[in-house]
Design a protein around this nucleic acid. Structure first.
Lengths: 316, 316
DNA sequence: GTTCTCTGTGCAATCGTTTGCAGTCGCTCG
DNA sequence: CGAGCGACTGCAAACGATTGCACAGAGAAC
C-alpha cells in the first residue's frame, strides 16, 4: 500500500482506486485518527483553502454578523476563514494583510476599506482575488447595501414627521458607509427645501463612545436639532446617552434614527427606529463573488436595498 | 548563494552567516517582495504558529472582546489566531475543531466549554495544549472571572436596596458562567433569609431574544419580582423589553442588574447596573497560560475579581 | 610548512501531500 | 494464443522552507 494510493482513496472522488481499497483505507484512517495535513497539501497544490477577512473590529456587531455569514458560506464551499481586526489603522492593515499573504491565502474579503487605503490595490497588483464588502472603494468590486438610498429613507421618514432642523452623526469621514448615508440624507433634505447646515453634521467613531461625544456636540448647539440621524445603531445608542444627559426626552424632544437595525434596537427601553440592511446576505454574496473571482470568472457588484423600520424613537 | 544561506539570513538571529550576506539577502527579499511561506516552514518545523479559538458566537460582544484581546496577545508572541463560532452546538464544535487540527494548530483556547462537551478531553488525549477561558470545566485549566462572587455582589446590592422577591434569568444551564453566577446570587439571598423559589429562576439563551422571552415569563408570574438579575447584559437588555411590555417601569417597579458591563450598558437610555469583569485581561491571561503550556510548563488557573457598577436600573 | 581552529557556505534530507507517468496483472477479443 | 486494453497501483518529483553535517578557505600557532 503506497501513500499515493491512500491519498487517492481519501480524495472526494476516489478516482482510479478499487472500491475495496477505498474502503480499507478509509476505515484505517478513522481507526488511526488520521487527519490530512491541509498545510502540506496546500504546499503541493498551491491552494491554502483559506480566505482572509479584514474587518475594522469584531466587537462591532455589524461586522461580526457579516463575518459570521462569511464564515458559514466559506465553510460550505470547503474553505476556512481567518479574520483580522485592523482597527481602521493603516499599520495594522499592512501587517495583518502581510501575515495572510504569508499563509498563501486564496482570496481576501475586505470589510474595512477606507479612502486612501492601499490594501485593495496591492491585492490587485499581486493578482490575489478579493472583494469589498460593506464599504465601497472606487474601482473595486464591492458588495454593499445602497447606503445613499438608506440615508434618503431616513430623511423622508423624518421629513414626513415634520422635522426641519435635524443633525447627522456621520461616522468616519473616510468610510463610504458614513459618507453615502450622510449624503443621501442631506440630499433628501435639500431637495425638500431644508438644506442642512454643516454645523449640524458631525463626524464620529463608529461606536457608542463616539456617538455620545458627537451627540453631545449636537445637543450643545445654540438651537439643538429636533431629530438626529446616526449612521449606525451604536452611534445612535451613544446619542441616546447624550440626549438624556442634555435633559431632553427621546422622540418628544429629539427623534432618533439609527442604521443597520441590529437585534438590540428592537428591545431597547425605547426601541430604536433604524434602517435595516441584510447583513447576512451581504456576507454570503461576498463569498459567492469571491469564489467566482477565484475561478477566474467575473462577478458583478451588488447593492442591496435597505428598509426603514419605524419604532418608538420617532413615532408614537 | 544557496537557499539554506538565505533561510539562515532571514532568520531572526541570522546565526552563522556573515553580516554582509545577511544584508544582501534582506535587501533582495524586500526588492523581490519575497514572503516566507509559513505553511511550508511549518511542515518542516512541526509548528504552524497558529492558535485556535473556540467561541459560542462572535456576535456576542463579550466573546468578541475576549477574542480581540487574545488575537492581540497572540500576535505579539508571533502567533496568528483562527476563530470558530460553535454556536454551543456539539456538531459544530466537532467539525470546527477537526478543521483546526487538520491545520496542525499549535494550541487551542476554548471559550465555549459546556458541561458534557468533549473538546477539552479530546485535546488532552491528543496532547494538544489548550486552555479554557470565560467558562470552566471540572478538571481543566481555566481563566475566568469569579462568577460566584459576581452573583453574590449583585445579590448584596439588591438586598441592600430592600428587594426580597427577586427573579434570575440564568442563561444556558450547561455553561459554568450562568450556573455559578446564579448560584452565587441564590446563596446570598438564602443566607440573608430570603431563599429564591425555583419558579423565579428561568433559563435562557445568552442573547437579547432569550432575555426577552425569559423576562416575559418572570413578569407573567402571579407575583412579579421587584428585581431581576440577568447573568449577562444582553439578557438584561432583553429583559428591559419584557419589563416595558408588561407596563412596568424600570427601577421603580422592577430593578435590573446585568453582568459584564459592556460599553453599551452605560449609555443606554436607562443606564444598566452591571457586574464588571475584565474581559481583555481574561483574554491576555489565557494566551499567557497557553504559551506556557505549549512550552511544556505548567500554568495556574485564574479567577479575576468582578466589581459591581451601580447605575440607574437599580439606584436613583 | 604542517596542523588546527574557526567562520561561512553548500549539500541533502526532511516534513506530508499530490499527481503525471509507467508498470503490472488479468481479461477480452480476434 | 498473442495482442491489446482497462483497471489498479507504485514510483518519484515537486511544493518551500529548515537544519545537521561536511567542506572550503583563511589565518594562527607551533
Amino acid at each position: 500500500m503506497h501513500v499515493s494510493t491512500a491519498s487517492r482513496a481519501l480524495g472526494s472522488d476516489a478516482a482510479g482506486v478499487s472500491a475495496e481499497t477505498v474502503q480499507r483505507v478509509r476505515e484505517l484512517a478513522v481507526m488511526l485518527g488520521y487527519r490530512r495535513d491541509v498545510g502540506a497539501a496546500g504546499l503541493r497544490t498551491g491552494s491554502s483553502r483559506l480566505i482572509g477577512v479584514l474587518v475594522p473590529r469584531l466587537t462591532d456587531i455589524v461586522l461580526a454578523t457579516i463575518y459570521e455569514s462569511i464564515d458559514i458560506a466559506a465553510g460550505t464551499a470547503g474553505y476556512s476563514t481567518v479574520v483580522a481586526n485592523t482597527l481602521d489603522d493603516a499599520g495594522h492593515r499592512r501587517s495583518r494583510l502581510d501575515a495572510m499573504l504569508s499563509r498563501r491565502i486564496d482570496g481576501v474579503i475586505i470589510g474595512d476599506s477606507h479612502i486612501g487605503d492601499t490594501a485593495a490595490f496591492e491585492l490587485q497588483k499581486l493578482g490575489v482575488p478579493y472583494v469589498l464588502v460593506m464599504r465601497k472603494l472606487e474601482g473595486h468590486l464591492s458588495i454593499t447595501t445602497d447606503d445613499s438610498l438608506g440615508g434618503r429613507l431616513a430623511a423622508e421618514h423624518l421629513l414626513g414627521l415634520g422635522h426641519r432642523r435635524v443633525g447627522v452623526i456621520a461616522g468616519d469621514p473616510l468610510a463610504s458607509t458614513g459618507i453615502e448615508r450622510t449624503d443621501g440624507f442631506r440630499r433628501a433634505f435639500e431637495a425638500a427645501g431644508y438644506p442642512i447646515d454643516d454645523r449640524y453634521v458631525v463626524g464620529s467613531g463608529f461606536d457608542t463612545r463616539g456617538g455620545l461625544a458627537a451627540g453631545t456636540r449636537l445637543m450643545d448647539l445654540a438651537e439643538a436639532p429636533t431629530a438626529i440621524f446616526a449612521v449606525n445603531d451604536f452611534i445612535a445608542m451613544g446619542a441616546m446617552g447624550a440626549i438624556r444627559d442634555a435633559g431632553k426626552k427621546l422622540r418628544d424632544d429629539v427623534a432618533l434614527v439609527g442604521y443597520n437595525d441590529i437585534d438590540i434596537a428592537a428591545t431597547l427601553p425605547v426601541p430604536l427606529t433604524s434602517v435595516r440592511s441584510d447583513l447576512s446576505a451581504m456576507g454570503m454574496l461576498s463569498v459567492e463573488a469571491l469564489l467566482l473571482r477565484m475561478q477566474g470568472e467575473t462577478a458583478d457588484p451588488v447593492l442591496l436595498p435597505p428598509v426603514l423600520v419605524p419604532r418608538a424613537t420617532t413615532v408614537g
